[in-house]
């Protein structure tokens, strides 16, 4: 991925030299042309076209903001309830993520979203222990975390 970005920069500079115009506009036009050419050549690279990953990062960010807003509304509801009808608990989440930064990112995203909080990570980095405000539907929360955050993170790092 880094290689493709570097190549794209190099192509933008090459375009500037070809045009004999050293402005940021020419650089940007060259970058766009380079992007199109790299897109055409994407099957010759060992990694994916890097714009997929840029898109995945943007998607993950938007997902995070959406979940953040939802989480705070959920907590607001719990706080404003006259009767405390919650049942807190801790459950384990098996994760397929491997590298350190992926797990850190997942843990932070879980902590910042709907009524869940990462308490601990197992020594082999395979299991996350999560405290939930309402444990009633553990399977559901595992599924939703797996389907949203873990998938989105894997989309970024794969």
């Amino acid at each position: 991925m880094a290689f493709q970005i570097l190549l794209n920069f190099f192509l933008a500079f090459l375009w500037m030299f070809l045009q004999v115009s050293f402005t940021s506009t020419t650089f940007f036009v060259g970058y766009l042309i380079g992007l199109i050419v790299i897109y055409g050549m994407r099957r010759f690279f060992s990694t994916r076209f890097y714009m997929h990953r840029v898109y995945a990062v943007i998607y993950l960010t938007m997902l995070f903001f959406k979940e953040l807003i939802m989480a705070n509304i959920d907590v607001l509801k719990v706080v404003l309830q006259p009767k405390l009808a919650i049942k807190p608990g801790i459950f384990a989440l098996e994760t397929e993520l491997e590298s350190d930064w992926e797990i850190t990112l997942l843990a932070n995203l879980i902590t910042l979203t709907p009524g869940t909080l990462v308490v601990d990570v197992s020594d082999d980095n395979k299991t996350l222990y999560i405290h939930a405000i309402d444990i009633a539907d553990v399977q559901d929360s595992i599924e939703s975390i797996k389907n949203t955050f873990e998938k989105a993170i894997m989309e970024v790092s794969r």
Partner: peptide, 14 residues
């Protein structure tokens, strides 16, 4: 040739 391809293509667009 994978790298030179881009230089040639950019020059041809130019």
């Amino acid at each position: 040739s994978k790298i030179v391809f881009f230089i040639i293509i950019l020059f041809s667009i130019h």
